[in-house]
């Protein structure tokens, strides 16, 4: 399998990465190299092998359901470009 420039452009848009035409060519070649590796791995017979979601054979740690965080809004909002009435302000978005 190999990617087209159009598919690379689509992926870049989804990831909000701006790519010039030249960069799209370069990115496509790099990604196709990775696909080559994936194809090699997919040739391995994995029948009966459970799909792996994490490389460590461990279970996730759990925390008790307790409120441990205090209000740190003032500190967090110091680094925000713009705030008002406790809200973060961002360029207008309406879906």
């Amino acid at each position: 399998m190999s990617l087209s420039n159009e598919q690379v452009g689509h992926l870049a848009r989804l990831a909000r990465i701006a790519l010039s035409d030249a960069e799209i060519d370069a990115t496509r070649d790099k990604l196709n190299g990775i696909f080559g590796l994936i194809e090699q791995m997919q040739a391995v017979d994995t029948a009966g092998v459970e799909p792996m979601s994490h490389p460590q054979e461990l279970a996730t740690r759990l925390r008790e359901d307790l409120v441990t965080e205090q209000d740190r809004r003032a500190a967090f909002q110091q680094v925000a470009p713009q705030t008002e009435a406790g809200l973060y302000l961002v360029p207008k978005v309406i879906e």
């Binding site: 008002e84 009435a85 809200l87």
Partner: peptide
């Protein structure tokens, strides 16, 4: 909010 969106 002056043409902006507020986020909570």
């Amino acid at each position: 909010f002056h043409g902006m969106t507020g986020i909570d």
